[in-house]
Amino acid sequence: MSIRLPSLSPDPDAPFPPGQSALRHPDGLLAMGGDLAPQRLLNAYRAGIFPWYSDDQPILWWCPDPRTVFRSDGVRLSSRFRRWLRRCDWVVRADTAFDEVIAACATTPRAGQHGTWITGAMIEAYRELHRLGYAHSIEVFDAGRLVGGLYGVSIGRMFFGESMFSARSGGSKVALSALAHRVREWGWPLLDAQVENDHLLSLGAESWPRSRFLEAVSRLTAEPDAAGSWSGRFGALRAAELAPARS
């Protein structure tokens, strides 16, 4: 059976179809076409929509149901990992190595996955969002060497995670924990993780009905929080600070 999808207008400011109209199979597929212009991407995230496609496909736009999210106070680390963290001398920063992080997310091998959805066009689009102060990288360093990280998009008081990687065991966990730690301090309640997998669930991710997620996104992206670099705002966070004194 063929799938008929709405095609987006060439105008990057043209509205998206409502997220609630996305297909059930495949879950969340909403529209196709358009481009990755900054304004279109920002409009997509404000509507709870994200691009996800391969090089041999047109641009595909998604709004799955349910939606995978982290509460900023809900990232869970095992007792063993927290004990290790308390002895860890890694340091976490933001927006000091965006290009390196997105390249690592695109090229790091993943179990059961061949190739990458982070195409050259996607990399350039998110680099432009980074230059505009909307896309951010969280970077984990060991003696100056990048050992893990993640990147995503922030609008208002909402962070939309896109991808993360580990060059050393635990690198992505530290990046996620540090992000949650900082945005919780800033009063941001929620992180979007898009689609669930066992790894995210083991770290405390929750599955929300799409309607609940879209309501939260509409509210949080409308709240004031200026775009711009996070390098000074985030500062340097020692990984050991992410482990409570008692566990």
Rank of each mutant, 00 (worst) to 15 (best):
R4Y: 00
P6I: 02
L8N: 04
S9Y: 02
S9E: 10
D11M: 04
D11V: 08
P15I: 10
F16D: 04
G19Q: 04
G19S: 14
Q20M: 11
S21Y: 02
A22V: 07
H25A: 04
L29M: 11
G33Q: 12
L36I: 14
A37K: 13
P38V: 01
R40Q: 06
L41Y: 06
L41S: 02
N43E: 07
Y45G: 11
R46P: 01
R46D: 03
A47C: 13
A47D: 08
G48R: 09
P51R: 07
P51Y: 06
W52F: 09
S54N: 13
L60M: 08
W61N: 03
W62N: 05
C63F: 01
C63L: 01
P66K: 06
R67D: 02
R67N: 10
T68A: 15
T68P: 03
F70C: 08
F70D: 05
F70P: 06
V75I: 15
R76L: 11
R80V: 11
F81P: 05
F81V: 06
R82V: 04
L85M: 14
R87Q: 14
R87T: 13
D89P: 03
V92F: 04
R93G: 01
D95H: 00
D95K: 05
D95L: 03
A97K: 07
F98G: 07
E100A: 15
E100I: 02
V101I: 05
V101Y: 00
A104K: 02
A106Q: 00
P109C: 13
G112C: 10
G115M: 00
T116K: 00
W117R: 09
A121E: 15
M122T: 11
I123T: 14
E124F: 03
E124N: 12
A125E: 09
E128R: 15
G133C: 12
Y134S: 03
Y134R: 06
H136F: 09
S137T: 09
E139K: 05
E139L: 06
F141C: 00
D142K: 13
D142C: 12
G144S: 05
R145F: 00
S154L: 07
I155C: 12
G156Y: 01
R157H: 00
G161D: 02
G161C: 04
S163E: 13
M164F: 05
M164H: 07
M164I: 07
M164G: 09
F165E: 05
F165N: 13
S166R: 07
S166A: 15
S166E: 09
A167H: 13
S169W: 01
G170H: 04
G171Q: 08
G171C: 10
S172H: 12
S177Y: 01
L179F: 04
H181L: 00
H181G: 01
W186T: 02
L190T: 04
L191F: 02
D192Q: 06
N197I: 05
L203P: 09
G204V: 08
G204C: 08
E206K: 07
S207L: 15
P209A: 14
S211H: 10
F213E: 05
A216P: 01
R219Q: 14
P224S: 14
D225A: 12
D225C: 14
A226E: 15
A226V: 10
A226T: 10
S229Y: 03
G232I: 04
G235C: 07
A236N: 09
R238G: 14
L242G: 11
L242Y: 04
A243V: 13
P244A: 15
R246D: 14
R246M: 14
S247I: 15
